[in-house]
Nucleic acid binder design. Sequence first.
DNA 1: AATTCGACTTGATTGAAATCATAAACTGAA
DNA 2: TTCAGTTTATGATTTCAATCAAGTCGAATT
Lengths: 198, 198
Amino acid sequence: MVPENILNAYQASIEKYKKGEVIFEENDNAHHYFQVHQGQVKMNNYNENGKEFIQGIFYAGDSFGEPPLFADIKYPAAAVALEDSLIYKLSKPKLINLLEEQPKVHFHITERLSKRLYYKSLMASEISSEEPEHRIVSLLHFLKKHVHHLEDHEDFEVDLKRQQIADLAGLRVETVIRACKNLEKKKKIRIVKRKILF
Amino acid sequence: MVPENILNAYQASIEKYKKGEVIFEENDNAHHYFQVHQGQVKMNNYNENGKEFIQGIFYAGDSFGEPPLFADIKYPAAAVALEDSLIYKLSKPKLINLLEEQPKVHFHITERLSKRLYYKSLMASEISSEEPEHRIVSLLHFLKKHVHHLEDHEDFEVDLKRQQIADLAGLRVETVIRACKNLEKKKKIRIVKRKILF
DNA sequence: AATTCGACTTGATTGAAATCATAAACTGAA
DNA sequence: TTCAGTTTATGATTTCAATCAAGTCGAATT
């Protein structure tokens, strides 16, 4: 997350994206740094049968899509606005220039990449080895702790649809629904008016 | 990858690890930067049933285990030497100091993190959505292109055991063996004296 | 109040990979 | 060359999430 005054100093623009609008496509070349100012963005893939996998969801203050700026690669997934959103956009050369002149900001970016890598490591091993209930609990635990910065004893009102949980955890909606019912029975989560509390 | 002369200038040590020796455990706190000088290292998880998942394999020149140095997190996986290995080890404060004084090296690290993130994004979506054969081909393609830097037309002699492919792709050995036989039939890979050519 | 639409739910069935069992092929050391 | 230990191979069986099919529920709109 780059502070707004610095983004402005380096002439970042703010772009409007409507709900559902695509910010970049899988396999596009990367030319800009993106940071959510307002709204929500998801990064996702579709396989040949149309099954979606959500790589991550990004909220105000989150940057996304940096890796292809720093390595010689294409976007591994598309980015789509989940709500009407305002996104800071800064060209690659300006970003590089910014990071050269502002080492502290560079460390912030490094921290951000590190956290994303941590999330991916977690989910990769979960998806590869664990049962649906375990995957869901791990996902919720990560979101609670690392995205919403809540303590264990605090209540976390999950703002995700069942389908989104499924697409984040590599499962199908029906499986998520059944697993959540089970988790409720086991008192691992609560469900109030269809909303999940964790 | 930090150049050796710079590592030496900042008083990095070289540690010996025997084949099978553990470099750090899952959930350990991170205190050092690691870079392979000679040998091979894997990062892995085991689930409660003993199933292994390999997060990555690292060769000479590769750094590993950086994320917890930059973000306030614990190691999401353990690191184990796959062969007798020599590993550069640099304390966290010295690394931070190094990166502050050598911005170019910081950009190298950023690039490295970005590439790891790319690999993880790829494998996460593969493991969550694709069939065994597809996963294996994607894995091999990534290794050929991004790890061994070979052109499409060149032959890639895969130096992984079936079990390792399974643990990288989230499959079981038997499934990998059967899938590889099928891929051979379909002329997508060749198998010579049990070695896979791609 | 009726209608529409998206999200959630439930049950039945299926299919593909995991599991289990067993053996063959290779490797290297004694 | 024999033996012990890996690694690869193959067949039979099981299992559990995906799939398919058919609802219900709730909120928003007319």
